[in-house]
């Protein structure tokens, strides 16, 4: 196996007495779509927030491209090439789609006032191209907040793309979407990897989607990792089936 893009080792995060993530370890290979599933409150978002630098890990380590990034601030993590989308819609609601994408580009490149003065040589990410990739090219001049929920989530993906990431953390990209939008979302995630070379770390409740596009899956239950493997392996794992018992998930 090639050197992992993202390496998580023994990661634990406590909130007071509650252990939201407990001794979680996994590795995401370059070009992989890696899924994390688990019932509500399993600690998936918490894990994302720790990787993305929004929370400090209580213990354990996160490394990206071989560099330890545990406890780094979220903007630093972002600049290293990890972008993220959020479980709830996060876009600049009062701005047009174009302005949203533009803002993402400048926030990434002009990340502080000195970077501003030094006039980074970075190429401007292709705004039109990104919009076309996402199917937003006709909506560039619409105000983001006025778009349908699913489209706002797509704009969120666009913001993450404008950063020029190597890895994208996606927190429930299909939640709240209708069936046809879900199919489109699955296709989009695949295309991110296939056409843009962006690896994806995906949290999602929609089982058919997860099983359909992920290369490997980690299952969490109450913060504890209970299984890790290919979709087929995970589906047949007894601990996983027990954890989901009583929940109306379908392992399609």
């Amino acid at each position: 196996m090639t050197a992992p893009l993202l390496l998580v080792e023994g990661l634990t995060r406590r909130f007071g007495g509650l252990i939201a993530a407990s001794d979680v370890s996994f590795a995401v290979a370059p070009g992989e779509i890696f899924g994390i599933i688990g019932p509500n409150g399993a600690g998936k978002t918490t894990l994302f927030n720790v990787i993305a630098g929004h929370y400090r890990p209580t213990s354990g380590r996160v490394a990206f491209e071989g560099t330890d990034i545990s406890g780094h601030a979220s903007d630093e993590v972002g600049r290293r090439g990890i972008a993220r989308t959020f479980q709830a819609v996060h876009v600049f609601k009062n701005e047009t789609v174009r302005a949203n994408l533009h803002r993402a580009a400048i926030l990434a490149r002009r990340h502080n006032p000195l970077a501003w003065l030094s006039r980074h040589p970075h190429a401007t990410p292709d705004l039109e191209g990104t919009a076309a990739f996402l199917g937003l090219d006709k909506l560039l001049d619409n105000v983001a907040g006025s778009l349908a929920y699913g489209l706002q989530k797509t704009v969120g993906v666009g913001l993450a793309m404008m950063v020029g990431p190597k890895l994208m953390l996606m927190d429930e990209p299909a939640a709240g979407l209708n069936p046809s939008e879900k199919i489109a979302a699955a296709a989009l995630i695949r295309r991110l990897r296939d056409e843009r070379g962006i690896s994806v770390l995906l949290v999602e409740h929609d089982m058919p989607l997860v099983m359909g596009i992920c290369d490997r899956i980690l299952v969490l239950n109450q913060g504890i990792p209970i299984a890790l493997g290919t979709p087929a392996e995970v589906k047949s794992n007894q601990a996983v089936i027990d954890a989901y018992l009583g929940e109306d998930y379908e392992f399609a």
Partner: peptide, 29 residues
């Protein structure tokens, strides 16, 4: 663009930071 950055940070700090903006540095500026 500086205005856009400051406004972004004010509107949604978590989002802006996730894209790499150093919120503190901009505020200090």
């Amino acid at each position: 663009d500086i205005g856009a950055i400051l406004e972004s940070l004010n509107e949604d700090e978590m989002l802006s930071r996730s894209m790499g903006a150093n919120a503190l540095a901009w505020r200090v500026a």
